[in-house]
Design a protein around this nucleic acid. Structure first.
Length: 484
DNA sequence: TGAAATGTTGGGGCG
DNA sequence: ACGCCCCAACATTTC
């Protein structure tokens, strides 16, 4: 992480390639600023296997919209975005040959797939004699720098929050107003990438629900600070108040806004319980990346490994009904439609639907994780894996399996006015959007909901029994090992 | 960032 | 006035 030095041998410095990935912004972008400070810049986005295989259908569409916005923004400040598809190392080496670039910068990612790739790229470029330099900023703090008093990783959120909140969080860098670019670099065409292909006929409907780009993110942040921020601690759980939350999750996922920008904007504008609750949410995101960094298998394996023995069901008919929003549990079906139509879901609703899938339906959390990955525009590897495991009971923090949400009780508490359910069910605005998106679906826009697919009290008891079973098998296994 | 079951308490109706 | 019972409200424990 040494600072780039201007080339000592020529007055016109060699260009620097800025390899953009999930930092699609001009403000508080250390990789971009470091490069722009020393000479001409070649911003490049490379569509590689990691993007192609990790992103779901909705996230790919979201990425497309973000790249459109970034492309406009970069052209406006003088350094047009280059698009290339292929193996990252091949693309970077080709660009270096074409342009005589001497350095590559990027913003670090620490999830498993990206980390593997980036290590390989850094080693190879360094071997080539190219200055390869990674920068922080995707999270508030680098995941490996937060340690307990004993020097270990954190496994519980609250102490992690305390440790992060007393740290000196870096102040965001100002937005770059002018960047020296390089002329005549071949770029592929975004449309050719067909990033909307997987959304199929729902593409336009979903796109109409998205406001992409750095400016949109900053506008939403301002709107939040000017309005609901002081009441956020109480109102954030109210599913019928979509404007009580920041709505920044999809912007964060592609890096159109940095968490440090949000952190310092909250610090600067208020000291209410609402402002603190919002900062806590940003730190949850850091916590997720902290956990994933220390357990790179967390996306596919239970964080508490002993939970691999739990008798989860694989994809089944119950799971398919859950995905389709046909469970007969009104708040669940409403939430699953919100997910389809907007590519997002209220945080409280995410916990409720996840609890129903993993506990009342006893379906493997990975089925839900995969569905969210497919449908969320704000999909993030760490947030998604942590969230699902947290609810399923096999994840971190004090969330034992017997914390089983009662959807009816949750709806009564967090959708008392029924505004959320009305919006997404029956004749609500959201329900109409859903119907327009899936004209051939069997969803009727009537007051009728399907019958409850399961009895909540019975399935609750069954889930607790399954948990007892797992514990018993674990104990038996332990005693066999002991006697052996 | 549960929910249900169980335990405790205290006020009021009533004999 | 007093004890008894009922039960709502709240607290604690258990799953």
């Amino acid at each position: 992480m040494t600072a780039l030095k201007p080339s000592p041998t020529s007055s016109s410095a060699a260009p620097t390639i800025v390899w953009l990935r999930k930092d699609l912004r001009l403000a508080d972008n250390h990789a971009l600023t470091a490069a722009a400070t020393v000479g001409p810049v070649i911003p490049v986005f490379i569509l590689d296997d990691v993007f192609e295989t990790t992103l779901g259908a909705a996230a790919k569409l979201r990425l497309k919209l973000s790249l459109e916005a970034l492309s406009r923004d970069l052209a406006q400040v003088g350094a047009p975005l280059t698009l290339r598809r292929g193996d990252v190392l091949n693309v970077l080496r080709a660009l270096i040959t074409e342009t005589g670039a001497k350095a590559v910068t990027w913003t670090r990612l620490t999830d498993g797939a990206a980390l593997e790739r980036d290590k390989r790229v850094k080693a190879a470029l360094t071997g080539d004699g190219v200055d390869a330099e990674s920068h922080g900023g995707f999270t508030l703090v680098d995941p490996w720098t937060v340690k307990t008093g004993a020097g270990n990783q954190f496994k519980v959120y609250t102490p992690f929050w305390r440790a992060v909140s007393i740290r000196d969080i870096e102040r965001p860098l100002p937005r770059l107003k002018s960047i020296t670019g390089v002329e005549g670099i071949r770029s592929e065409t975004l449309a050719d990438w067909r990033l909307d292909a997987e959304m199929g006929p729902a593409t336009n409907a979903l796109a109409s629900q998205i406001t992409a780009g750095e400016q949109a993110a900053l506008d939403k942040l301002d709107a939040f600070l000017d309005g609901p921020a002081p009441r956020y601690a109480d109102d954030r759980d109210q599913m019928g108040l979509p404007n009580a939350v920041t709505q920044l999750s999809d912007h964060l996922a592609v890096g159109e806004i940095s968490p440090r920008t949000i952190w310092w904007a909250l610090k600067a504008t208020g000291d209410t319980p609402g402002h603190e609750a919002a900062r806590k949410q940003i730190v949850w995101r850091d916590f997720a990346h902290h956990l994933l960094f220390h357990d790179p298998e967390m996306e596919t394996r239970c964080w508490r490994r002993e939970w691999e023995d739990f008798a989860w069901a694989d994809e089944n008919d119950a799971a398919r009904k859950w995905k389709a929003g046909r469970t007969g549990i009104d708040v669940v079906d409403a939430a699953m439609r919100e997910l389809w139509v907007t590519g997002r879901m209220h945080n409280r609703a995410r916990m409720i639907v996840a609890s129903v899938l993993t506990k009342n339906l006893l379906v493997d959390w990975r089925v839900g994780e995969a569905w969210f990955r497919h449908t969320l525009i704000d999909w993030d590897p760490a947030n998604n894996a942590m969230g699902w495991q947290w609810v399923a009971g096999c994840g971190p923090d004090a969330s034992p399996f017997f914390r089983i949400f009662n959807p009816a009780t949750q709806a009564e508490k967090f959708d008392k006015s029924k505004a959320y359910r009305r919006r997404w069910l029956y004749q609500g605005e959201g329900a109409k959007l859903y119907k327009a998106m899936w004209p051939k679906s069997d969803v009727t826009l009537s007051l009728e909901t399907p019958p409850l697919m399961v009895d909540l009290a019975t399935t609750r008891r069954a889930a607790l029994a399954a948990w007892e079973d797992m514990k018993q098998r674990r104990d038996e296994k332990a005693s066999i090992e002991e006697s052996a």
